[in-house]
Amino acid sequence: MKSPAQRHYERVSAEQAAASAAPGGSLAGASVYELMLAKLASDRRRLKSIQSIERKIEVKRAELLPEYVDYVAGALAGGRGAQDDVLTTVMIWRVDAGDFAGALDIARYALAHRMTLPDQYDRPLATAKAEEFADAALAEIRKGATFDGAQLDEIAQLTASADMHDQVRAKLHKALGYIAEQGGDGKAALEHLCRALELDPRAGVKQDIARLEKAGNATGAVNTAAGRT
């Protein structure tokens, strides 16, 4: 475990390195960044040696991610937009570990500065964030649980102007629709699900749309009748 002095030094060093790098440039050569890249490579090798996905997630959550907290805090505090593969990897890992608030902290910065993911992820950062959050929300909803709609809505807004496959954006609207329905907002739910169907005819929301439309018509009929009494 790092001492408070070590943690402070790591955070300050990360902040200084991020502040000195030009926007859109690279942190290559900065000692703290190079050290964290080396650690990242070592941690990736460790994860690759683990067969169980569940175990990988637990190792990320309990053992690896805490080691990056101070670097991330410093990099975000001093950052001017230089590409940072440590930050973007930690962002992905935080989603894997269920730390969506922590992932959003990095996503706001990374998306604002048009950062990219390391080569092994092979997809744009905005697409990855949209799909990961949507998949996580849908997984929770399938289990009968809830997901923070404000977080998902923020991801939708942060990635609104990004070019991505229609199917990915459809997932976002599908998840937002289900969350709106959980919150009792049938109108918003129907709007999101209809948009999901427009983007992807195979989104799997047709029955939900029909159910919501039927419920809306029934409510409208009841309200009309009540108004005549």
Rank of each mutant, 00 (worst) to 15 (best):
G98V: 12
A82L: 06
D85W: 05
R55H: 15
T116C: 07
A107H: 12
L125S: 03
D99Y: 11
R80E: 09
A62C: 02
Q120Y: 08
D70Q: 13
W93L: 03
V90N: 01
I106K: 06
E67S: 03
V59C: 13
A110V: 09
R94N: 01
V59S: 12
A110K: 11
R55E: 14
W93D: 02
D96E: 11
L87W: 06
A73R: 11
D96V: 04
G78F: 04
A107W: 12
W93Q: 00
Y121A: 08
D70W: 13
H113A: 11
A112W: 09
Y68M: 00
R94C: 00
V95H: 02
R80T: 13
L125Y: 12
A77H: 04
L76Y: 12
A75P: 06
D85C: 04
I92T: 01
A73F: 06
T116V: 10
L111H: 14
M91T: 03
L125E: 10
D96L: 02
E58A: 13
D119C: 04
L104M: 13
V72I: 15
Y68D: 02
P118F: 05
V59G: 12
V86K: 03
I92W: 08
F100H: 14
Y109A: 10
Y121Q: 12
A112N: 14
G78S: 03
Q120N: 04
R94S: 01
A112G: 09
T116L: 10
A82T: 10
L104K: 06
D99P: 14
V59A: 10
I57N: 13
D105M: 01
A112M: 10
V95G: 01
Y121D: 10
K60Q: 14
E63Y: 01
A97S: 09
I92S: 02
G74Y: 09
R61K: 14
L64F: 02
I92G: 02
Q120L: 08
K60F: 05
M115C: 11
A62G: 03
F100S: 08
M91K: 03
D84K: 00
P118S: 02
K60A: 03
W93M: 01
K56R: 15
A82K: 09
L104S: 02
M115I: 10
A112H: 15
R123P: 11
F100C: 06
D122V: 15
A97V: 01
A110M: 12
D105C: 08
V95D: 01
D99M: 07
P118D: 04
M91E: 09
Y121H: 13
P66E: 01
D96I: 04
E63I: 00
D105F: 03
P124I: 14
K60T: 05
D96S: 06
G78Q: 02
R123S: 15
D119F: 08
V86C: 07
T116D: 14
A103I: 09
K56Y: 07
L111G: 14
A97C: 05
Q83R: 07
E58H: 14
A110Q: 12
G81T: 09
T89M: 03
L104C: 06
